[in-house]
Each structure stands twice: as C-alpha cells, then as structure tokens.
Design a protein around this nucleic acid. Structure first.
Length: 188
DNA sequence: GTCTAGATGAAA
DNA sequence: TTCATCTAGACA
C-alpha cells in the first residue's frame, strides 16, 4: 500500500497502517528517520480530540487535507505531532507516539541529550525532539516538505490495540495501536 | 475574567 | 510521586 492510499483510509485504519512506515526529516542538521511503532487516533466525534468541538486557530491543521502535520504544545513544556486524516473540513488525525530510530541516531542523541537508543523516541514529546520537529512545522504537508513518509515494503506487522494514554475523557476507547513486542514503544 | 484539564518527561 | 510550566478553550 502506498502512502497516498494509507492516508486516504478512515482514521482508525490510518493509525494502524502507519505502523511500520518510515518517517524522515531532512533537516539542516542532517537527516533523521525512524519506523513508526506506536500511534493513537483522534476522531471528530471523540471527546478527547482537540477537534471535538468547533475548529479553532490551534486545531485548524486537523481539519486540513490528509497528510497535514499538526504540532501543538502540551503541559506548557512538550510538543506533540499528528498526521491529519480525511479530506479538508473533517477534523481527525493520528498522534505519533513512538519511533524506532533508524538514521541520524547521533543527531537524535545530541538533540535529546541522551544516548540510550530505546529512550530516544519512545513517547510523543521525545520523538518530536529527536526528529527536530518544531512548532513552525505546524501545517506542513508530508511528502511536500522536508518531512517525508515512506510506506513499508513487506508484510503486515502484528498490531496490538489498547486504550489511549494520558487522557480521562473517552479513556475506554481502543484507539491506540502499536507493534507487538517492539521495544521502542512508550511506557506509562 | 476565571477555571481546568491536559494526546508529557525527568527526576527522585 | 512530584514537578516543571502554561495555554487553549469553556463558561460567566
């Protein structure tokens, strides 16, 4: 399945299909990339989603076309990155929660000030920092910017589905997806 | 204006 | 378990 095909799927399917994809950022400091190993879906009728109510200045990228990147700050300290799904006007997205580092590991270690490979991208805030994703990249579009997405070549990986992390609203929905037995996923 | 929860991470 | 650190968005 191509990236275009993946991004045209319903949001829950996108969250699942993104597992195994490679995310690349060709930054000024150099190229970093990693395999997506953990995601969460946020739908339009989902009380935990930023797009649950009306569109606002902050959440506008969620309502943009599929492949748009939505970056927001959380707890006043960290940033999280999402990939928007659906056509323009529908506010749904997939949160990137963890990557398995592949390229540019030295750059990630420097950005994260941490040499432990397993801790480099094992959480939404960590991955954003390791990949050098900035608030200014809000609204960028995957594969039309230095952020690239590549679909996996091989077969379907084994996927685990659980409830999402760090929320109290709609906390019983099974909208979190991760690769089974992968040591690079986040923990809580 | 005032309130509150929050899609976190690191340290202790 | 605590804390750092703060904003968007709801409601009045």
């Amino acid at each position: 399945m191509s990236v275009e095909e993946i991004l045209s799927l319903p949001t829950l399917e996108v969250a699942k299909a993104l597992l195994g994809c490679r995310l690349i950022h060709a930054s000024e400091e150099g190229l970093t990339s990693g395999i997506i190993v953990e995601t969460e879906a946020y739908l339009r009728d989902d009380p935990a989603s930023h797009s649950f109510r009306k569109m606002t200045a902050r959440t506008a990228p969620m309502f943009d076309k599929a492949g748009t990147i939505y970056v927001y700050q959380i707890y006043g300290v960290h940033f999280c990155a999402n990939i928007t799904t659906n056509e323009t006007g529908i506010g749904e997205a997939v949160l990137l929660r963890a990557l398995q580092p592949v390229e540019g590991i030295e750059i990630m270690q420097k950005r994260r000030k941490n040499t432990d490979i397993k801790s480099l991208c094992s959480g939404p805030g960590k991955l954003v920092e390791a990949m050098g994703i900035k608030k200014t990249m809000n609204n960028w579009v995957v594969n039309e910017s230095p952020i690239q997405l590549i679909a996996p070549a091989g077969n379907n990986p084994e996927v685990h589905i659980t409830t999402r992390i760090g929320i109290t609203l709609a906390k019983d929905l099974n909208y979190r997806f991760y690769l089974k037995n992968n040591p690079f996923i986040s923990r809580k």
